[in-house]
């Protein structure tokens, strides 16, 4: 039996050298897929996610069409080669469907769907590599891709995860930390209003510990907001320069 891994050392360092409230290095890029209306790529530490957005466009399925607004479809997929152990692809994995639905509901609150009746907006999220935090990385990638596609939103959706271990809250858990039975909370925040639009908890967490974990996760979301916003500003400015009028 291996000794239980010390997630936070007595000196206050985590296995990858981070401090408890430190987010991993984030790298973003938009407009990475030429065929999509909007696309984005995010690396958060070693977690890599690709997002493609199509729409608003003519719906494929008649059944889901709404007469007064656009329907949002989210497909969340994890590549077979993405994690430490190869996962065989299960057709229509229920967990993946559930995550897709959760993300869809999150974005329905911010995307101005009433501007586009009878059309659909498709968000395709592909996890290429996962080292923990796949869901919140995917949400952030989706936000960037929607903005890249020029789809109006009332606010950003910024997400991050936090957990509680060794008597303290830690931010942005990696794979090792997530698999070490650390209760992990994934939070999606709308920065302008400060409202939480999504909350997911994987295991049990004592009610007393909930507040500090949510607070830390929200802080992480605000940090993500700064990172995402900076990226959008730079790419917008660059695009504005090349499209001569």
């Amino acid at each position: 039996m291996a000794a239980r891994l010390e997630i936070v050392s007595p000196e206050g360092l985590r296995v990858d050298g981070r401090r408890p409230a430190e987010v991993r290095r984030v790298l973003t890029r938009t407009g990475v897929l030429s065929q999509a209306d909007g696309s984005a790529y995010i690396e958060q530490g070693n977690t890599k996610c690709l997002a493609a957005v199509y729409g608003p466009r003519e719906p494929v399925k008649r059944a889901g069409v709404l007469h007064d607004r656009a329907t949002i479809n989210v497909e969340y997929n994890v590549s077979s080669f993405s994690s430490g152990e190869r996962r065989a692809k299960l057709r229509r994995d229920r967990k993946l469907l559930e995550i897709g639905l959760m993300i869809k509901q999150t974005f329905e609150t911010v995307v101005a769907t009433t501007s586009f009746p009878r059309s659909e907006i498709d968000i395709y999220l592909q996890i290429l590599q996962t080292d923990g935090g796949a869901v919140h990385t995917a949400i952030n990638a989706a936000t960037l891709a929607l903005i890249d596609a020029g789809i109006p939103m009332t606010d950003y959706v910024c997400a991050c995860s936090a957990g509680f271990v060794n008597d303290q809250a830690i931010l942005d858990l990696n794979f090792l930390e997530e698999s070490a039975d650390v209760p992990t909370l994934t939070v999606a925040l709308l920065p302008k209003s400060g409202k939480i639009s999504m909350l997911g908890l994987e295991s049990r967490l004592h009610i007393d510990k909930l507040e500090p974990v949510i607070a830390l996760a929200s802080d992480g979301c605000m940090q993500m907001k700064d990172t995402l916003d900076e990226a959008i500003r730079i790419s917008t400015r660059n695009l504005a320069k090349t499209v001569l009028h």
Binding site: E75, D122, Q126
Partner: peptide, 8 residues
Amino acid sequence: CTVACSPS
């Protein structure tokens, strides 16, 4: 080997 297509 497996070949899969991303929905995009």
